[in-house]
Design a protein around this nucleic acid. Structure first.
Length: 665
DNA sequence: GAGCACTGC
């Protein structure tokens, strides 16, 4: 018994004790600030431990007594789940007990849950049922500086709720640049009498927490570069030949650029002198399958430097360890919505200063790093401080509908952190009126408008679903709604298998267009394919997306059942809605997205002013049609594409949307 | 002939 087996006697700690985190020494002052202020802004560097520690401090300090809950919101699902799992480990409980999380389709909480991580979109939805969010004693809004539209709407709601609940505490985590803006927002009360202010304590406070990151050298170009992809490739090799070991992360804007850069880097890497350290180059973007994305986390082989060429996904959503060098092109593709035309654009735009420093920060996670910016220091100084908030450049129809459902009738006077342009609000209101969700006084209609707000799909599809029963095609529309909400990720193109994917897609093709094709694919997946991944692999379908479609369809079906609208889904035989019923039903929701094919094969919208092209992924690409409706329109580069297209009859437009088209002419 | 990233009781 002489042997003393270390591994049997000691269990390695899963996590560093939280006392070692920089935040621990601020514990008392943090708790004091939260106690005495309704709103506390935390400026926490990455690695400060704010997200994992603050909820535990609050719990220990008694904020969860009398059954109250501390909520922590995140803009992304993965963050909500991974942080919850970590905090549960630190607390020493099972996830779903004292510490839990709640995201769409996954509620891992129980009556015992005291610390709850959730997405901010979900917390807004909770306000539909519990307008004062009364079960929460503290609500921490994490990553507020990202300014997602859900975060902005949530902050506006919280400001309203704070006036009615003086005992509620709000904690906002922000980057340095925006802390004052958040504080100002919460300390000015535009339309309240003075006496109502500061009732629950002081209006607010800001506290800074230092992080635990390593220094990063920032390097700029001396003169601007003409082609940043080419410059990026040569910079990779300069780092590789001149700098010490460590992996490289290169930020470009999109799939095409990334594929080109990956190819160029592997070609040049083949010319490296024999015996030198080699290069392993990997792409990273959302359009890749999960397996392809996972490669970036693998250890590279011996004597090999890993180079990851990524979109913005690596800026905040995906964190890769071992990165020592960052190369920043200075550009990102951003979505914007033109209220005049109703068309979304996707364009490469210069990043903000905040985004540039976030990118640079990806280099210093494990040791000191370097960031090579492919632009000059003057270029950097000219960049905007922060990105334009999403609320100022997005289609607001879904959010106007939500605000109305929350009892906020005057959406123009709602207290926004940053007000959206009036045209966006008008456009959204007009669309909701034409769909029948709002009446002529812009009040939410009942039951139609209220039900549309409760359905978790965009308003045009919500309207379609709510009329489907009267067309006898509810079962089919549930499937189509679930499939279109996947956003084009249904089919997967594997390397060099383009032809095979095309022919797989043709197997499900329906003459009438993409919606019925999606319906065919789903029905094959759940019947013949038995919801198995093998079927997806054989048919070039995205298994993850198809599984998600099954969940979404189930959720939508339950919502409708609650409204007393039940799909007749008897066990025998396929659904019975005819193609015409389905296409008529689509027209009742998508009349605003109608277009007519021209002799040259392009489309014009009803007003005739906009030239639209079928997206190459659509069945209507290279096919004849007359009138169509489509799910989505997007301008990229110089062309405007429509996606998910289905043939309809012109007469149906007049039948279901005469008001809309009279209004327009 | 081709789309950044997120997200919903």
């Amino acid at each position: 018994m002489a042997d003393f087996d270390l591994s049997a006697s000691f269990i390695p700690a899963l996590h560093k004790p939280s006392a070692l985190l920089p935040i621990a020494k601020h514990r008392e002052s943090l708790l004091y600030l939260i106690e005495t202020n309704q709103v506390t802004i935390i400026v926490g560097q990455t690695g400060s431990g704010k997200t994992t520690q603050i909820p535990q401090f609050l719990h220990q300090a008694g904020w969860c007594e009398d059954g109250k809950v501390v909520a922590v919101t995140q803009p992304r699902r993965v963050a909500a789940t991974t942080v919850a799992i970590r905090v549960a480990e630190e607390v020493g409980c099972e996830v779903g007990k004292e510490v839990g999380f709640s995201i769409r389709f996954e509620d891992v909480t129980s009556a015992a849950t005291r610390i709850k991580f959730l997405t901010d979109g979900l917390l807004i939805r909770e306000a539909l049922v519990d307008p004062l969010l009364s079960r929460y004693s503290v609500i921490m809004v994490d990553e507020a500086h990202e300014r997602s539209i859900s975060t902005d709407i949530l902050l506006g709601l919280l400001k309203k709720i704070l006036k009615r609940r003086p005992e509620l505490r709000v904690v906002i985590s922000s980057a340095t640049l925006q802390a004052e803006e958040f504080l100002n927002f919460f300390s000015t009360h535009s339309d309240e009498p003075k006496s109502a202010q500061n009732e629950g304590g002081n209006a607010g406070a800001i506290i800074s927490l230092e992080g635990r990151t390593y220094p990063i050298d920032i390097l700029y170009l001396e003169s601007p570069s003409e082609d940043y992809v080419e410059k990026a490739v040569s910079t990779v090799f300069e780092i590789h030949t001149k700098e010490a070991g460590g992996d490289i992360l290169l930020f470009l804007t999109g799939r095409e650029e990334i594929d080109n850069a990956v190819e160029a880097i592997s070609e040049r890497a083949a010319d490296l002198r024999p015996g030198a350290q080699s290069i392993l180059v990997l792409p990273l973007y959302a359009g890749l399958s999960t397996e392809q994305q996972m490669y970036v986390f693998d250890e590279p082989p011996e004597n090999t430097r890993k180079v990851i060429v990524s979109t913005n996904i690596a800026e905040a959503s995906v964190t890769i360890d071992g990165i020592v060098y960052v190369i920043d092109s200075g550009f990102v593709k951003l979505r914007a919505f033109d209220p005049k035309t109703g068309i979304e654009t996707l364009t490469a735009t210069p990043v903000s200063k905040a985004a540039a420093s976030q990118r640079a920060g990806r280099a210093g996670r494990t040791k000191p790093g370097k960031c090579f910016r492919l632009y000059t220091e003057q270029n950097f100084q000219a960049l905007p401080d922060a990105n334009i908030p999403e609320i100022q450049r997005t289609n607001l129809a879904p959010f106007v509908l939500q605000l109305k459902a929350l009892g906020i009738d005057n959406v123009v006077r709602f207290d926004y952190l940053t007000a959206p342009p009036a045209e966006l609000l008008i456009k959204a209101t007009e669309l909701l009126y034409s769909l029948g969700a709002l009446d002529e006084y812009a009040k939410l209609t009942r039951p139609l408008g209220m039900r549309m707000a409760e359905l978790a799909v965009e308003p045009m599809m919500a309207k379609t679903l709510l009329t489907a029963q009267s067309f006898g095609c509810l079962s089919e529309m549930l499937t189509i709604a679930a499939m279109t909400s996947l956003g084009g990720s249904v089919w997967i193109q594997r390397d060099g298998e383009k032809k095979q994917m095309e022919s797989a897609r043709r197997r499900f093709a329906a003459e009438e267009g993409d919606h019925l094709t999606l319906l065919n694919a789903y029905q094959a997946f759940v019947s013949k394919g038995k919801k198995e991944s093998r079927f997806c692999h054989e048919n070039h379908l995205n298994f993850k997306a198809m599984t998600r479609a099954v969940s979404i369809r189930g959720q939508l079906k339950r919502y409708l059942e609650r409204f007393g609208i039940a799909a007749d889904e008897s066990l025998k035989g396929p659904p019975t809605g005819t193609s015409e019923q389905i296409r008529r039903c689509l027209t009742t929701g998508y009349f605003a997205h109608a277009a007519k094919m021209q002799p040259d094969g392009s489309f014009r919208n009803v007003e005739g002013g906009t030239v639209l092209h079928a997206h190459p992924s659509s069945l209507m690409f290279n096919r004849k049609a007359d009138w169509v409706v489509f799910h989505e329109v997007m301008e990229t580069g110089s062309k405007t594409f429509i996606r998910d297209i289905t043939k309809i009859e012109k007469a149906w437009l007049l039948e279901y949307a005469s008001g809309f088209y009279q209004l327009k002419s």
